[in-house]
Amino acid sequence: MRVKVRLIRENRVVDIDLPNGSRVSDLLKKLNLRSVSHIVIKNGEPIPESYQLADGDEVEVLPVVSGGL
């Protein structure tokens, strides 16, 4: 199956191929990202690591690290 991923920080969209039944945690692994430092969002709402993705899903990935006051 194929999932469309918008990487928010990099402001670019990539298509990721995953085995059927893959979860958000599998997607993060494929992107080489840690779940403790990234949030996956679908339709404006965060989704947990165990959420099962489906072919054609469109998600956004937000890294949580930043720097400020």
Partner: peptide, 9 residues
């Protein structure tokens, strides 16, 4: 850090 981000969202 992930919790402050989730709380903000």
């Amino acid at each position: 850090e992930k919790e402050t981000t989730l709380y903000s969202i």
